[in-house]
């Protein structure tokens, strides 16, 4: 070790090569904290404002009678029951069909399909489908479910509406599922294989439970989108006025957003108030649904 004399200057411990500038870095910290806080505050302020105006307009006319009555030409007698039941039916169809289909497709693409130009093409297309305007899905649903498969769906029914919304949200669920699967570390898969597990055992017992919280987050986003959709259901011809309750998948139906849209469009101010009441009901359904999804998600996160 006789090279000490001609060591480069960079290694000379006396030379101040580091300027930590701690105060400047802390300042940057604070600036970003303030920016993030501001962004959150704006989002919350808008939300609070929205909710408050809705509550002020709608709480007055929101009562049990409103929830249990059929629509009427007189605002004070009008209720939301068929739309509420219709929304519950539709969301039931959407959840039960889109979950296995979306998760199955995501699972196949991520775990089984070979990574070649074809799967990449499929991947790009699915991502793009998530951005297609919902009215296009409505037209597709009209052509496919209402017309082509009329013998199965019986036309403009809950089944047609639900399946149309399934098409609409499938891309979101597939993309979320793939991301969730991709986030599961390979070491977990290897641990399973090394014990003599088959591919399916590894996926079912280890990968899927680990990915489920991410999948459920995708489901929440997707169902939240589906529950508020109006255009595609109008396109397939959901009725605006239903004086009876849907009795099954092959019944005609209306849903909350359509009912609300219908009331908002009337000239009388009383109808605008019950529209606000309808929005409160819609939000309550949305919150309940997401609450269930969050509960499922947390159950699976706890065991990790």
């Amino acid at each position: 070790m006789a090279v000490q004399d001609n060591q480069p200057a960079a290694l000379d411990p006396a030379a101040p090569m580091f300027k930590p500038n701690v105060s400047g870095r802390y300042k940057l910290d604070r600036i970003f904290a303030a920016l993030a806080w501001g962004a959150t505050a704006i989002a919350i302020a808008v939300l609070v404002w929205l909710i408050l105006t809705i509550l002020i307009d709608g709480l007055g006319s929101l009562d049990w009678q409103f929830i249990t009555s059929f629509p009427s030409r007189k605002a004070e007698r009008a209720g939301i029951l068929p739309a509420l039941v219709g929304t519950l039916w539709i969301m039931g169809v959407v959840a039960f069909v889109s979950f296995p289909l979306g998760v199955g497709a995501g699972l196949f693409l991520e775990e089984f399909a070979e990574d070649n130009w074809f799967t990449q093409l499929v991947e790009i297309n699915i991502s793009n489908l998530a951005g297609v305007p919902s009215i296009i899905y409505g037209l597709l649903g009209l052509a496919a479910f209402v017309r082509l498969f009329e013998s199965v769906t019986n036309g403009r029914t809950i089944l047609s509406g639900g399946l149309t919304l399934v098409l609409l949200i499938l891309p979101v669920i597939i993309v979320a599922t793939r991301e969730a699967f991709r986030a599961v570390p390979d070491s977990l898969r290897w641990a399973g294989y090394a014990l003599g597990a088959t591919k399916w055992e590894v996926i079912w017992n280890h990968v899927l439970p680990s990915a489920l919280p991410g999948i459920m987050t995708g489901m929440i986003l997707a169902l939240s989108r589906a529950i508020g959709e109006t255009a595609p259901l109008i396109a397939i011809g959901a009725a605006a006025f239903i004086p009876f309750l849907p009795e099954g998948l092959q019944s005609q139906f209306t849903v909350l957003p359509i009912q609300i849209y219908n009331w908002v469009g009337r000239p009388q101010a009383e109808f605008h108030d019950i529209a606000a009441s309808g929005i409160i009901v819609l939000m309550a359904v949305l919150l309940t649904m997401n609450g269930v999804a969050v509960y499922i998600r947390n159950r699976f996160q706890k065991t990790r």
Partner: peptide, 15 residues
Amino acid sequence: RRQVGMVFQRPNPFP
């Protein structure tokens, strides 16, 4: 793999 078991470089218990 059932007959030839493996312990990995980084511990990887199941969650």
